[in-house]
Simulated scan of single mutants.
Amino acid sequence: MASSVHSSHSNASVLIFLFVSAILGSLSKVVLAGNFYKNVEITWGDGRAQILDNGKLLNLSLDKASGSGFQSKNEFLYGKFDMKLKLVPGNSAGVVTAYYLRSQGSSWDEIDFEFLGNLSGEPYIVHTNVYSQGKGDREQQFYLWFDPTANFHTYSILWNPGHVVFYVDGKPIREFKNLEPFGVPYPKNQSVRIHSSIWNADDWATRGGLVKTDWIQAPFISSFKDLRTNACVWSNGVSSCSSNSTSDAWRLSQELDSTSQKRLKWVQRKFMVYNYCTDINRFPHGLPLECTVTTKS
C-alpha cells in the first residue's frame, strides 16, 4: 500500500495545487488585535476568568471547584492566530491550559495546543492534536526549550488550504499537510472559534495520571495577552474576505521554506517526546495513512 501511495504522490500534488489556487482566489485578510473586551467572551468559570489592564491581559484560574475559559466572538475560516501565554508556575501537576481552534457539531474540526502541567523543576509538555470531521488521535508532544512560566511566549497556529503549522516563538514545531487526495480528511469547510481554558486533568495529564493535582497550590493561573488574528471572519455562511485585497503571507505559504524546514527538524529532533506516527504498538495494523504519505513524500 505504501508504494502505491508513493507512486500517486505527484498526481495528488497537482490536485492539491489546483484546489489551493482556487481557494486562495477568494480570500483576503481581516486583522484583529489587542483588546480582549472587544475580541472574546468569557464562557465559563463563575468569575475565575478576568480581563485586566483595560483589556490587554486575561487571566484564567483553576481551583478545586472549577476551571474557566473563553472563546472568540468571531468565527474564522483560515488564518494566522497568535497568542502570548504565561503558564502556571511552580507545581502545576494535573493542570492543563489549552489554546485551540474548534468548530461546532458532532463531526467537528479542531487544532490544539494543550500545555500539560508538571512538578516543580520539571519541563512542561506541549501536546498538539488535529481533528478532522470528529476524528483526532494525531498527537505529537514536545518539551519546550525555555521556562514557559517565567515570561510570555508566542504560540501560533497557521491554518490555510495547504497545511496547518504550529509555531512557538516563530519556530515551527509541527506541520499537518492537506492530503485529501490520499483520503486523509482535512479541516477546510467548518468555521472555528478561538478557545482557551484551564482545567483539572490529573487523571492523565502528568505522567499518565500518576501525579495528582496538589490543591494546596490553588488557585492555578495562566495569563494571556496580545491575541492577534490575520484571518477571514465567517458569518452566516459568508466570508469577510474578498478577491480584491492583496495577498498575505499566511495564504501564500503552502509549503515551509528551507529555513523553516530546518527549524522544524531541529525542534523535532531535540524536543519531540511523542509522535503518533511512530507508535507502532498503538497502531498494530499499520500507521495512519498520513504518516505513510508524509514519510514517502
Rank of each mutant, 00 (worst) to 15 (best):
Y78I: 00
I280T: 15
W145L: 01
D112M: 00
T97N: 10
Y186G: 03
R193M: 01
F76S: 03
K73H: 07
Y124K: 06
V165S: 08
I194T: 04
I221K: 08
T128F: 10
R102I: 06
D226M: 07
K225H: 04
A2C: 14
S239Q: 11
R251C: 04
V238W: 13
S66G: 10
A65I: 13
N178I: 02
W215F: 06
F224N: 04
H195Q: 14
L24A: 05
F76W: 05
R138E: 08
S107Q: 15
S66I: 02
K80S: 14
G94M: 02
N118F: 01
N275C: 09
G136T: 03
R228I: 11
H6K: 15
L52H: 06
V168P: 05
L32E: 15
L85F: 02
A93W: 00
W145D: 05
F81V: 05
V31D: 13
P284D: 05
S68W: 01
K64E: 15
V130L: 11
K135V: 09
V164Y: 07
N275M: 07
S61D: 00
V95Q: 03
W44P: 04
V5H: 13
L24S: 07
F224I: 05
I157A: 08
L210W: 10
I216Y: 15
N59L: 07
I157Q: 03
S68D: 05
R269L: 05
H163V: 11
V95R: 03
V192G: 03
Q261Y: 10
T206L: 06
K84P: 04
Q104E: 15
R193D: 06
S26Y: 13
V96N: 00
E110R: 02
E122Y: 10
M1F: 14
K212T: 03
A201D: 09
